[in-house]
Design a protein around this nucleic acid. Structure first.
Lengths: 220, 220
DNA sequence: GTCTATATGTTGATAGAC
DNA sequence: GTCTATCAACATATAGAC
């Protein structure tokens, strides 16, 4: 009888912990340097392994970059989509998205810059982004969230408590107000003359002001 | 008497037209690939000159990248700063910034993605950004615009026609709503299931809605 | 000023020992 | 699985002819 350890292991010769260490090191380096600027040597060093091991686990720089991108892409939007597609009231959704995004981005302030840069220079990543968010086709994501939002907005408009706005403009405005400060962080820090700490205070103030700002914008 | 053509020419052996052609080719390539991903060969090809000529005009890839960045950086903010620092009424300023930005970005939709990517991966460019906007120190830019805005907002608040907001949050919100859709363009196009043309229609709708949206957000 | 040809240095990737 | 040593392929930059 053939000796075997775990049945599920598609790649039985890969150490889960090492793979994870490499992935996290790669994440750090790719986020900091961009895919084109990243060096396999720097990743190996940051993971405290040899450069050859990177290829043993991920075959090529491109595949490693893709793995990192998928992981990062799956981190930003899914929870937002969940909230926006939920049954919560519209005002509640706005408040929760603001809270969710600012909380998360304060802990990963470089994520927007990395994702924007990556999608800008590697359009081939766009489908990977979609599949990282969900297994559905692009249209299906939209429909689920947008149909829901459209109905809720229509209800508010009919009740004269809100002006009309298309669901896509609604979502883009909300994301813009949350995400842009992080995407433009280096520029803003220079323009406002603040350091990392000052930036965090700036975001903390937004946390309280953004929801009222957004909701009042939609009053009739 | 020594023959000389133009007294002002610091680099008399440089053809102005060729330099400009190289600069524009470099702009195209750097914007499309990013500094790290750009290849001197591709730039030379796009400028229809030899690769050696690039070094003759700009000495190194790094210097060429810097020249391109400065040019691009000087294109986005200065006019916005002029408007925000002007004597126009607050509501007028918002409308003009929206108009200005959307108009410009529709013609250069990749600019935000490039600038964000560049500043993200090359923090050493931040001072270059500042000096590209104006020769002043960081603090001076802020003060000129922000002092003016602060006074105007205070006036509106006193007249009970506007809620209180700090000038920096005011500016960041305005920029976010204008610039973010372009920075996140590839993502949005996928998420909304639209093509280039659909994106332009999306922006055209924003042109009309953004100013009211923003101003109503600040009503008391 | 603009070209061809080439030097010089990196970088991703592989071979093979342990 | 993890390492050392090395290859082959660029990419930047320069030398030198025209």
């Amino acid at each position: 009888m053939v000796k075997r350890t775990r049945r599920r292991a598609v790649r039985p010769t890969h150490d889960e912990r090492t793979e994870q260490r490499i992935l996290e090191a790669a994440h750090a380096v790719f986020v900091r340097r961009g895919t084109a600027g990243a060096r396999m040597q720097e990743i190996a060093q940051e993971a405290a392994v040899n450069q050859a091991l990177l290829h043993y686990y991920f075959r090529s720089k491109e595949r490693l970059a893709e793995a990192v991108f998928r992981r990062a892409a799956g981190e930003l939007l899914p929870r937002v989509i969940d909230v926006l597609g939920s049954d919560a009231a519209l005002e509640e959704k706005v408040a929760r998205v603001v809270e969710l995004e600012l909380d998360h981005l304060l802990r990963a302030p470089f994520l927007p810059g990395y994702l924007i840069s990556e999608l800008h220079h590697h359009p081939e990543r766009v489908p990977q982004l979609i599949s990282a968010i969900t297994g559905l086709a692009p249209g299906d994501i939209s429909s689920k969230v947008f149909v829901k939002l459209r109905a809720q907005i229509a209800g508010r408009v009919e009740a004269r408590t809100m002006r009309a706005i298309t669901p896509d403009q609604f979502v883009v405005n909300l994301l813009a107000l949350c995400v842009f400060p992080f995407a433009a962080r280096p520029m803003l820090m220079a323009l406002l003359g603040i350091d990392r700490e000052g930036f965090e205070r700036f975001i903390e103030r937004r946390r309280a002001e953004l929801t009222p700002f957004f909701l009042k914008a939609l009053r009739p």
